[in-house]
Amino acid sequence: MQYFTGSKAHNIRTRTIAVHLGLKLSEYGLFETDGGNRVASRSEDEVYARLGLPWIPPTLREDRGEIEAGLRGGLPEVVTERGIRGDLHTHTDLTDGLTPLEEMVAAAAERGYAYYAVTDHAPNLYMQRMTDEKILAQRRQVRSLDGKYHGMRLLHGTELDNGPEGEVD
């Protein structure tokens, strides 16, 4: 897994570290250069440890300072789904989404979101069937639901399209 995740540049760096340690890193594991004995291959943790590094999450494997940060004990914390506090761009079935507003708000509350924004298309994108009346009614609906789902803050906005002269809907 370690060999096939992250960027090519990160892979080159870890292979270079292996070479300086008298080792060879490949998709099959980490091996002694002399004799070819396998020294690590069961887990990413094992491979990184044998290279003198902490485990580096796949999303950080870009050769943009993660090796140095790992050696200093300063790898950043990776955002996980549990760390997401809300969503600021969603579309309901009022335009090109598939689900009604109430169901989307309930699903956001189930995820434990602190905030949730409904941002359907503005009326100038005619194919989306939005009108000023519909969007104002949706705003009233959002305001009426605000705070009713575990105190989750509901926000209302629109996705605006830019016109040829830079004007917005």
Rank of each mutant, 00 (worst) to 15 (best):
V78H: 02
E165P: 00
A106I: 00
G65R: 12
R15T: 07
Q141T: 04
I56Y: 02
A108N: 03
A18K: 08
E62L: 07
G157P: 00
L125N: 06
E167P: 00
D34E: 04
A117D: 03
R72Y: 09
D161T: 05
G97A: 09
Q138Y: 02
M152K: 00
N37K: 09
G151V: 03
Q2A: 07
W55A: 15
A114V: 06
G52T: 01
Q141M: 11
R13W: 03
I84S: 03
D45V: 05
T33E: 14
L145I: 09
N11K: 14
M127S: 15
E46W: 10
G147S: 05
P164T: 13
M127Q: 08
P100V: 03
T80K: 10
E44F: 10
T80R: 15
E167K: 13
N124G: 12
L51I: 06
L125Y: 02
A69K: 08
Q138D: 09
G52C: 09
V118T: 11
E103Q: 08
A9W: 08
R153S: 07
R140H: 10
A107T: 04
L160Y: 06
L101D: 01
I84Y: 02
D146F: 02
G147Q: 07
E32M: 02
T59I: 06
E44D: 08
Y113A: 01
L154F: 09
A69R: 05
S41H: 04
L154W: 05
G6Y: 09
Y115W: 02
A114P: 06
L154Y: 06
A108G: 05
T90C: 08
